[in-house]
Structures are given as structure tokens and as C-alpha cells.
Amino acid sequence: MNFDFTEDQQEIKKTARDLLSSRSSLAKVREAAEGKAYDPALWSELVELGWPGIAIAEEHGGQGLGAVELAILSEELGYALAASPFLATVTAAEAIGIAGTPEQQAQWLPLLASGEATGTIGSAGGLVPDADAAAVIVLIGEDGVARVLARAEAEVTPVDSIDPTRRAARVYAPPTHGEALGGDSAAAIDRATVVVAAELVGVAQRALEMTLAYVKDRRQFDTPVGAYQAVSHKCAQMLKDTEGARSATYFAAWAADAEPDRLPEAASLAKAAASDGGRDVTASAIQAHGGIGFTWEADVHWLYKRAQVDAALLGGSGTHRARLARLLAARLQPAAA
């Protein structure tokens, strides 16, 4: 039993943290959000590092690492609040990588791994991240079956979501367009879901750290406000929510490769915990910052906005709690299932 990263994995985490602290500083995130344009230099650098293909098989031009390494990067990009099509692209690659037909994989994975093209996954009717520029869209229908569409096969309508650090769109495609994933759509969606959960963990971690720095510094009544238990206990709760989401998410990332039979439950566990945790922690961050936290000028609102949109992506906590209940009922009453 070793519920911790290997040395290599820790190295990936550290490299990502260091690099993103300068390349995706909050000033740059703000620039991207306010200018409604991603920094192309950031994306080129991520591509050069091979990050979009970190979990794509080597035969398709990726690095052939696993879901844990991908979760690490996703968490760090969430921590940095990076404005880039990374999440959308790697979640599409996860789906096609586990459930695509050999043709679908051969067609799309090398393009996604090399960064020549971006992709995305999302639900018909939901907000689909970065769909406007994606070459390939994995679209989940109401029946839970995912289709692979070239962008030209879909109607993509860009929308301004509440999160201006990431582009979003509504996507519609007639039933005759595209081609269903060859394998199990649920497995494809579950693997993508874990990546979103990991991003939420990073967002929550950043919100906690920004809040701690603020409440240690801000003084009222001649005392740092973080000394008041109304504030310090809120911070303790933020840690509990962040660490709880982290436990569930790391478990799911591990299960995705090591024990895929447990992935359905683990992915829903992770997404339910990370959606709740991400929203609660970022909301608390605004509250603990007081008036300044409610201003456009402070940066905490970017975290809250990202958490809100991520929480809904690939199913919110309510959807995943309902699924957990179904899985449990089936386990306890195998005959009735």
C-alpha cells in the first residue's frame, strides 16, 4: 500500500508547478480572460513538453504514461487556472484512447498528441469546453452514448460562460452525423471525468492557499482576521473539502489504469466530491476575502467561476450521487439488479 506519488510523478508535479507559476501567472490568466484570447505561446510550450499526449499510447505518438500522471498535470493546470485547450483536448483523447475504434484512434490520437489539433468532450445540451476550435468533438447523447464528430459535422455555437478563462460552446449534431465510439462510452466518459475532477482539486487548492495568505495578512481590530475562529474554522473546512476531493480523485486516477472494474464507482465518487469541494472551497475563498473578494480586481472570482463550470462538466455532484446509489443498490442486491 502506497497512497502517494512515485518520485517520477512528483517530479512531473513539481515541473508543472514551477513552469506554470511564470507562464500562467494570474496576471496572464487575467489577460486571457479579459482579452478573450488564449496565449498561443503557452499552448505551444505545453505541446513542446508533450503534455497533451502524456497519457496517449506511444503507438499514437503520445508518452504512454497513465491516468495518474494526467491527473497530476490537470491538477496543476487547474491550480494555475491556465487558459488553454488542454483539459478539453486530453479528455477527448482519454475517451478515444479507451473506447475509440482503431480507425478513430489512428485518425485523431496522433493529431491530439502532437498538438496539431485540439479536441473536446461534452454533453449535448451542456457547455462544451473549447468546442469552437476543436478538430474533433466527442459528444455524449442523452442516452449516454458518445459519438465522435469532426467539427464540420456539428453545429457549434460559442457562448460566453461565466468562466472567461475558458472558451465554451453549445454543440448540436443531427443523429446521423458522426460515428459512435467503438467501445464502452461509460468507460470513456469516466476516464475524462477523473481529469475534470483533478482540475477541480487544483482549483480548490489554489483557492485555499490564496485565502490563507490573505487572512494572515489582513488585520482588523489589531488582529490578523485569520486568528478569528469564524475565519480559521472556515479555512479548516476548506482544507477538509480539498483533501477529501483529493483522496477520491487520486483513488479514481489510480483505479482507471490499475483496477478498471472499480472505475465507474471511483469516477463518480471523485466527481461528486470534487464538484462539491471545488464549489464550496472557492465560494468560501470569496467570503473570507470580504469585500475585496467580491471585486473584479481580486483574482479569487476566476477560481469560483472555473469551479462552477467544471462542477457541471460531465455531470454534477447530484448526477454522480444518483449513480453511486444505483451502483450500491446493484452491489447489495445482485439478484434485483
Partner: peptide, 15 residues
């Protein structure tokens, strides 16, 4: 427990 977390884990000042 929240006091312990706030002070020893999060490094918040003690009232």
C-alpha cells in the same frame, strides 16, 4: 480539531 488544523496545518495565527 479545527483549531489544531488551523494552527498546526494551515499555520494560521492563534487568537
Amino acid at each position: 480539531l479545527k483549531n489544531i488544523v488551523a494552527e498546526r496545518v494551515l499555520g494560521l495565527p492563534r487568537l
